[in-house]
């Protein structure tokens, strides 16, 4: 697979490490059912056949965490963006395909 890193450009997937579903977010630790919420956050994942938003870390490149849109059936990657929204600094991120 080749992942379009928004900083480095298209790179082989060997340069990245995979984490998984990018749509889960860390629950508030002081919420009433925190343990239940964390259980879901840590362990429970959808396993979609099709579009998937997932976290990849460009370990051998710019060391940025990315959200990659990948079709789990075809490995087709339709895009990637920084997991940290670059906000005002976005102007300095050269985005290649």
């Amino acid at each position: 697979m080749r992942i379009p890193c928004p900083y480095c450009g298209l790179r082989d997937a060997h340069e990245f490490s995979y984490l998984g579903d990018a749509t889960v977010s860390r629950p508030a630790p002081d919420m009433p059912d925190a343990q239940e919420a964390f259980f879901h956050y840590v362990y429970l994942r959808e396993n979609p056949a099709g579009a998937h938003e997932e976290l990849w870390y460009h370990a051998a490149g710019c060391r940025q965490w990315l959200v990659v849109s990948r079709d789990t059936r075809t490995h087709e990657i339709s895009g990637a963006s920084f997991a940290r929204a670059p906000k005002a600094d976005a102007s300095h991120a050269e985005v290649k395909p």
Binding site: L55, R63, R84
Partner: peptide, 11 residues
Amino acid sequence: YQHLEFCLQVL
């Protein structure tokens, strides 16, 4: 290092 970057960039 990767974990710390995750915390800083994602969390």
